[in-house]
Amino acid sequence: MASYISLILGCILVNNFVLTQILGICPFLGVSKSTKTALGMGGAVIFVMTIAGFFTSLIYHSMLKPYGVAYLQTIVFILAIAGIVQILEILLQRFSEPLYKALGIYLPLITTNCAVLGAALICSQKDYGLLKSTIYCAASATGFALALLIFSSIRERLDLARPPMVLKGLPLTLITAGLLAMAFMGFSGLGK
């Protein structure tokens, strides 16, 4: 139990996907203009990554590992993740219209989110079991959502500031992301 708690905390704070492992940078910069879209994207990532983590781990342990073709993981995982996102979209549209509307365009966008594939690959690399993989993916996604939320709040406030012309827009965004990543380095002493 204690090992799972340290795993979850480690994923969210110490080895934060965006700020420490530099995965999923495109949505981090792309949809962090407002807290609302950040929340939508964060929710969608948590949702998809947890489910994708479970299924990719299932495929890895039931097919790839026993037949000794672990080198196929990248292509098979991409296939599986794309399929899972498609199925999720159809099911959500049918059974949970509000959630489908809330996630909106972010759901199909996640198909190409490297954080989802990254989490699946890390799980198989570290040879996590089914439960541990799912927890790892869910916690990593929560870390992603947290980083996205913090970053979008910062950017919303930055919009009110009047930075020098040279820094306006993307330069300031990138500097802010760097500072945020440095702040998260403070957590590195928290666990292994």
């Binding site: 495929i59 097919m63 790839l64 037949y67 073709v69 196929l72 292509i75 098979v76 296939l79 599986a80 794309a82 399929g83 498609q86 199925i87 159809i90």
Partner: peptide, 14 residues
């Protein structure tokens, strides 16, 4: 076989 099986299964599932 594995790629075909995973692809087919995903396709059929969708």
């Amino acid at each position: 076989v594995i790629i075909v099986v995973v692809g087919l299964l995903t396709g059929i599932a969708i």
